[in-house]
Write a protein that binds this DNA or RNA. Structure first.
Lengths: 202, 202, 202, 202
DNA sequence: AATGAATGAGGGTTCATTCAT
DNA sequence: CATGAATGAACCCTCATTCAT
């Protein structure tokens, strides 16, 4: 039944949302099933009807976050009619920022905890970031071949770029509501492209 | 007696090393006193003869790591006779890299877990990174005033620089033994200064 | 649901009874949660579902005992129509004796351990006995004013009276089942009133 | 060697005194070997050179206290030339009081903890009080035979007398320094003999 | 489908006792 | 004799998970 399925899905999201908030606030280990079910307004047993374990909810949250993030990241299109690569990069970063700002708890979960292999649950995050790293690395290698990108260890450089994005995004956890996403995105991109040294005036 | 103190110190380090390894491998919460003492080859009670709690060892490890790191970081000297700022930066980064490579478990503890507010024990890390961020931010602001640094949100930019360093350093956890530290340091600095875009040949 | 509440109450009492027996036999410190739950036939965690700590069960046992005891003790009514003070005293003592004999473990807990400041848990007992002492002391002072009571240090005398009751009651721990409570009560009261010296026949 | 034995004895008493103070203040279970040796100013191992266990020191303290107490209690001499029984009783009680007041920690240990079978160590106290109870009981029985003592259950009555003494003595733990022992002794005896009711004027 | 009482493995910590020095 | 570092059994408590209702 569609209605039954809808109800089940609603319940599922109710739990996911509660769990997300608790995990974000307290961290995986300090978060207890107790807090989650209290926050979700459900009974202890109900939780296990929807998720097989504490690890499973955490994984589920991360998974959908990563799927969502993935959808924001679009490989740069270099074909003639496409927008300039700069602009495409900027759009990618803007989309990712907006995705995070729509649900700030995700910043903690993905950006912060995601990197800590504290819990076996976080495996997916490694894979995701690995995927992003590869994407960046490939782009760098391509750019180097074209002479657009400075020669460097592409893997290391990709790690630095990703790191700089993480560093920048992490700041947003506590950022004010009325943030100009476009401006922030510009700075994130510009830093990665040109560094901090003053660009000589054109 | 010097001998007694030496013995005590040796024991202490024996425990610290075991704990460091366990914390690095399993994370603060998943690490158990059991594993630590087994790894250190001591009895349960002995552990508490040297550290008052699990939190205390963790803190102790972090504290000495942060003190050590702090010693590697020397504010840039802008006086006439000093080395070029670039060189000083490079030296700073090199020292930090070498410090980490001498004890790779620290990379996990400081760089990875340090950022996760999961463990209440890690309070010192926040303070440390806050301190580093300030240092970077001040340098940026100063550089902007001098017209050497591109105009930007200094706080955000500092977060990006620190993030890029973290990203780069984190890669070293699994790096091969025979790493050319100077080369890596150069790339870390260059990225932060000039970004990835190819520098036009002079 | 009344049924659910009843069940919960039953469980609670099951634990309280087991704990009371263990505490009475072994004392607060030597009693272990292990023994209590084994004796109650429940799992470790179940215990903490009903009581927050070992101290809490102990306190709970004492509290309800003291409330119960308090209900047995009724201040002597000196108004014209009331029973003779002697009789009222006798009734009070009888009620207290019966209260204890209905649950002999309480004698150990309240009378014996209660006096030992060993267990920080027993704070309520001090307060209770302090209250009883005051009651006795006030009565004595009043009686002295009326010339009915021999002049003495009322505080010390109250301590003696309470002590004699404790001594007497403590004997009942091992007394035979078919005890004539009225007779014992008479002797307890008579001793406190007239001592051991033969009363000259009128 | 006498000197060696003296030294050993001195050490032993040093430990006993420290232990007595600690036990009196904290109770048997809350007292730790740590506190005792720190208070005695000796090393951990030294303690076990003089006493085989924590229980053993406690027992030793109680034993010597009971021996001392026993020496203060002299059976009433009813032979023609002897002092009046009243006076002898008074002297006994006075001696016991003075014994306790010379070392108030003993009041806690003997009077208070002694009654609680919390620790297996306290067995000697039961025996001692049992002995005292017998003494009192025999005197009562004898007195009843002579018609001097009111007919009663001698065992119960003895328990009451002992209880009243304990109650009275316990008050002295916190009594002021300048206490008139003779007066207190009089009241203790008078209460046991005549109770609280005003004696008709002679 | 939902409940929440019950479970018990596992956690960190204490402390009386031992033993090599 | 004296020391104090080392020991490990035992303690109280937490919390993810199960299951009868």
């Amino acid at each position: 039944m569609t209605t039954a399925e809808q109800k089940r899905d609603h319940r599922r999201h109710q739990i996911l949302d509660a769990a997300k908030a608790v995990f974000a606030e307290r961290g995986f280990h300090n978060a207890s099933i107790n807090e989650i079910i209290k926050s979700a307004g459900i009974a202890r047993g109900t939780f296990y009807l929807y998720f097989s374990s504490k690890d499973a909810v955490f994984q589920s949250i991360l998974d959908s976050a990563l799927v969502g993030l993935n959808a924001q990241i679009i490989g740069v299109d270099m074909s003639p009619g496409a927008e300039a690569p700069n602009v495409q990069l900027h759009q990618n970063v803007t989309r990712v920022l907006e995705y995070f700002l729509a649900d700030r708890a995700l910043i903690q979960l993905v950006i912060t905890y995601g990197f800590a292999p504290d819990s076996e649950s976080a495996l997916g995050v490694d894979a995701f970031f690995g995927h992003v790293l590869e994407l960046i690395e490939r782009s760098l290698t391509y750019g180097m071949a074209l002479g657009l990108v400075q020669k460097c260890d592409a893997g290391l450089c990709a790690a630095q770029i990703l790191g700089s994005l993480r560093g920048g995004i992490q700041r947003l956890t506590t950022a004010q509501e009325d943030l100009d996403v476009a401006v922030v995105a510009s700075q994130l991109v510009d830093f990665a492209l040109y560094g901090v040294i003053a660009r000589s005036q054109a």
